[in-house]
């Protein structure tokens, strides 16, 4: 009984509205059948299963939804969306929650975000992704020097990765750098974390 009143008190209607608007999904359509969770390949590393995240979002329990590692470990494979009997694009809800968590600097899986930033930094600099550069930046950021060192001998022997970045000719790299610059400037103007 106490729990029920607690949940009612913590219901954040504004949060529900924003999630619905950004994801384009009607959260109240979820009847908690658990199909999304049953098909989710990432469930074994989640702290909360995807149907529980859906429940938290539906009830407006912002902390439960945004501070969960699950939204960071979601593989965006869309299996949940495909199998939801109510046609909810569950993957879109997961992505929306991750975007919201990021903007508020609520990052429950720092390593994952560091990896993404490392990748994007190479794109920002060169216009194209650079695998070795991504790994080097990630090792620096995460202080994990030995990441994938076991793969190195084979990868080197087979020349799997280019040692030099590919840039985009005719000012293309600069055009991409400007996209990132405008993106960051706009985030600063709007007071969100880029």
């Amino acid at each position: 009984m106490k729990e029920a009143t607690d949940i009612r008190r913590r219901r954040d209607a504004g949060f529900i509205a924003v999630v619905q608007e950004r994801s384009g999904q009607n959260l109240s359509a979820c009847y908690q059948c658990g199909n999304c969770t049953a098909g989710c390949p990432a469930g074994f590393v989640y702290d909360r299963q995807v149907h529980q995240i859906m429940r938290a979002a539906q009830l407006g329990l912002k902390d439960e939804a945004l501070d969960s590692r699950a939204v960071w470990l979601c593989l965006a494979c869309s299996t949940c969306s495909l199998r939801c009997p109510n046609n909810i694009d569950v993957a879109a809800v997961m992505e929306t929650l991750r975007h919201m968590a990021r903007r508020e600097n609520r990052v429950a899986a720092r390593k994952v975000e560091k990896f993404w930033f490392s990748f994007l930094d190479t794109v920002r600099a060169f216009g194209r992704a650079w695998e070795i550069g991504t790994m080097a930046l990630y090792m620096m950021r995460s202080l994990r020097v030995f990441t994938d060192l076991d793969l190195a001998p084979e990868a080197l022997k087979k020349r799997k990765f280019g040692f030099r970045p590919h840039t985009v000719a005719n000012g293309g790299s600069g055009a991409v750098t400007r996209i990132f610059k405008r993106y960051r400037e706009r985030a600063a103007r709007e007071g969100t974390r880029p």
């Binding site: 993404w116 990748f119 991409v176």
Partner: peptide
């Protein structure tokens, strides 16, 4: 496509839909 650039892959859309779409 001449002078094509990275689509942003998973990291861009995981971080921001508009950034991904711009790339």
């Amino acid at each position: 496509i001449p002078d094509w650039n990275c689509c942003g892959s998973t990291p861009a859309h995981a971080v921001d839909t508009e950034l991904s779409a711009a790339l």
